[in-house]
């Protein structure tokens, strides 16, 4: 097992291997992401029963929750990739971390926007300082910070390293921020209606949600792989194997 992991690590560290390997994955990933999205949306929008309190407006959950979950895990992945780069100087990890940042931020923004749209019929206002929305907003700020820092650094290496350090500091802080925001929220608004916290969800509502979550993660993997391939081509453009691809 361990040796297999070491081999996998060395392979992942090789841009050429990654590029050639993912060539075959792209089609299947796209198919799986697209297919599960269609199934999940059809089930969620057409077949799941309406919510007894919120009516049909709850159906935005099928976008909101997967986006919010993904935005959080994407930050974690970005920080881990950054750590791999800092510790083992693996360039592939730096490219992956760089590529994840805007994608994660985009999902964070989607979660915030859908939260606001959902909030209008539920709370009667676009924005409420709800604990989850506030945490999401802080996460968006953390993404902005990483992206702004990476963009400001003059040398590429420094931008990778600085981004990784900041992402790691952010990673340690996220649970503290979440905890403090939740604590603050219960203090000020004990009786708000929570958007997603149901005592229990009807299975007909839950299944489409799970499918949508899987679909979102697949889509994220697809986007990150495609963007990483672009980074590889750009950085290895002077190598023989890339020239061959570009010529053909």
């Amino acid at each position: 097992m361990w040796q297999w992991l070491v081999r996998l690590y060395h392979r992942l560290g090789s841009p050429k291997w990654f590029y050639e390997m993912t060539e075959r994955w792209i089609f299947w990933l796209a198919l799986a992401a697209g297919g599960s999205a269609i199934v999940g949306l059809v089930l969620g929008l057409l077949y799941a029963p309406a919510d007894y309190q919120q009516g049909d407006s709850f159906r935005i959950i099928y976008i909101h929750v997967p986006a919010a979950l993904l935005a959080q895990s994407a930050y974690m992945m970005m920080a881990v990739a950054g750590a791999v780069y800092l510790i083992w100087r693996m360039k592939m990890a730096a490219w992956v971390a760089k590529v994840i940042a805007p994608v994660g931020a985009a999902f964070c923004l989607i979660a915030l926007l859908t939260g606001a749209i959902w909030g209008k019929p539920t709370w009667g206002t676009w924005w409420v300082w709800d604990a989850r929305l506030t945490s999401m907003l802080m996460l968006l700020f953390l993404y902005f910070g990483v992206m702004a820092l990476q963009q400001a650094m003059e040398s590429e290496e420094a931008s990778y390293k600085a981004g990784a350090i900041l992402a790691l500091v952010g990673l340690v802080n996220i649970p503290i921020i979440k905890y403090s925001v939740e604590w603050w929220n219960t203090l000020h608004q004990p009786a708000t209606l929570k958007l997603t916290e149901k005592p229990s969800m009807h299975p007909d509502m839950l299944w489409p949600l799970l499918i949508m979550i899987v679909s979102t993660y697949l889509f994220f993997a697809l986007v990150v792989i495609l963007r990483t391939r672009n980074e590889i081509l750009w950085h290895e453009r002077k190598r023989q194997w890339v020239r061959k691809i570009l010529e053909s």
């Binding site: 953390l142 702004a148 802080n173």
Partner: peptide, 21 residues
Amino acid sequence: LRSGGLLLALLILPLYVPVLI
């Protein structure tokens, strides 16, 4: 960085939230 001041605020302010709360 030449324009470090503003950037510094962007990076650090979200991290200050728990202390502030």
